[in-house]
Write a protein that binds this DNA or RNA. Sequence first.
DNA 1: AAGTGGTCTAGACCACTTC
DNA 2: AAGTGGTCTAGACCACTTC
Lengths: 249, 249
Amino acid sequence: MADGRDGGGAGTAGSIGFRPLYQQIRDVLVQRIADGRLQPGEMLPSEMQLASELGVSQGTVRKALDAMTAERLLVRRQGRGTFVAEHDETRILFQFFKLVPDDGARSFPDSEVLSVTAAEADEAERERLALDDGATVVRIRRLRRLAGVPVIVEDIVVPEAMVEGLAAMEPPNNLYGLYAGRFGVTIGRAQERLKAVALTAADAALLGVPAGTPALEIDRLAIALDDRRAEWRLSRCLTEHVHYLSDLR
Amino acid sequence: MADGRDGGGAGTAGSIGFRPLYQQIRDVLVQRIADGRLQPGEMLPSEMQLASELGVSQGTVRKALDAMTAERLLVRRQGRGTFVAEHDETRILFQFFKLVPDDGARSFPDSEVLSVTAAEADEAERERLALDDGATVVRIRRLRRLAGVPVIVEDIVVPEAMVEGLAAMEPPNNLYGLYAGRFGVTIGRAQERLKAVALTAADAALLGVPAGTPALEIDRLAIALDDRRAEWRLSRCLTEHVHYLSDLR
DNA sequence: AAGTGGTCTAGACCACTTC
DNA sequence: AAGTGGTCTAGACCACTTC
């Protein structure tokens, strides 16, 4: 195995930093995705090839690949191969976008970008994104429509160091696809905090409802594969005809 | 294997209803939990014993047990054994109760039961719980406090046929524990739909805030292990100092 | 020391896709 | 026919808990 794990057999007795082989192999492969040696959509070597390359059995490789599939980092297709997961719209639609029409199929909202600015991070942004004093961020404000109806006002904050040049671009609808493809930052998970709030006059005007209308506030922190905090997003959503779907298992 | 699966080796080619052995074994064990032959907290036979009893290899048993552990139906403890998961407060706290104080540790809310009634299900209840015309339900209305502060008004509806005698009882705080222990109905998963709403005058009075205050409405359908719809719960939550936590992976 | 689950190996054969 | 992942077996040894 080329990437440096503690040598020897499976689990030397008494070793402090013991970590199962299959997890070490998972870490190696995650690192290859995180630093771009494995690109989204790329096919991995077969289980047998990986096993021989890494000096372990096929079963151990399989266990690592299964774990990464459960983490949604990989997609396995019987008879075809194992692929690095892509941040395509369908995947994001189901993994990260939980707003669903009360009746009807899920769909992806479009975005009208209202502003893109770069500035020094304020205290709340530094705290939430774990940034140093003086760090700069890119702020994107946009209005999102589902089936043509405005339902979401969204303020997005990204550390500028992570997305150099973003401030000068026209941000696409699918930002996570951009982060992965253009900046090598793959969002692996996110934490959302939900509250019910009364809309401010400004947000209400954008959404075409009276000020004070109840809205679902979604405070999302998106975490990259290397555990860096990659984006902070505050959305206010009208939920008269849509709901936030949460499956508890 | 005593519980009737399609015989023969692993995956007879061409058989229509093919289902992997380890999934068939999972199904057998889920059935034993669902009908009470395996009780919450009970220790399962060891992997080797199960393998010999069911006529498969230990690896296949392990795969079934691992799947059930991922489903949170079992708890495995190295060196001790494999146990049927319990609906204790800690487990429910993390699996089903997603409201968290903005600052501070998670805790379980207490409950003040406002009313318990039995009645014929109305149309909305029949629809949501998939009940026949004329079916009866038990309705529980309660006020829940976190750290002494009223934050949730909750309306709970349960098919009476599933919980005979509940209407005459004093419902405990932990209802899922009651369902499992007293009525043999184990909640395996739930689907929640969240909206932001304006509080009605009645709910607002209970919570001690002005009518129209924005609240987080949680519409939860709880599903039993045998896929029956076991409970419909509609909660209205004040989110000034708490939030709903949703981890997206 | 005995019993449990956890990891790892080696090998067989099946199911599915592509050529 | 060849290549991929999916399932299943049998056996070894490790890590942890209990007695």
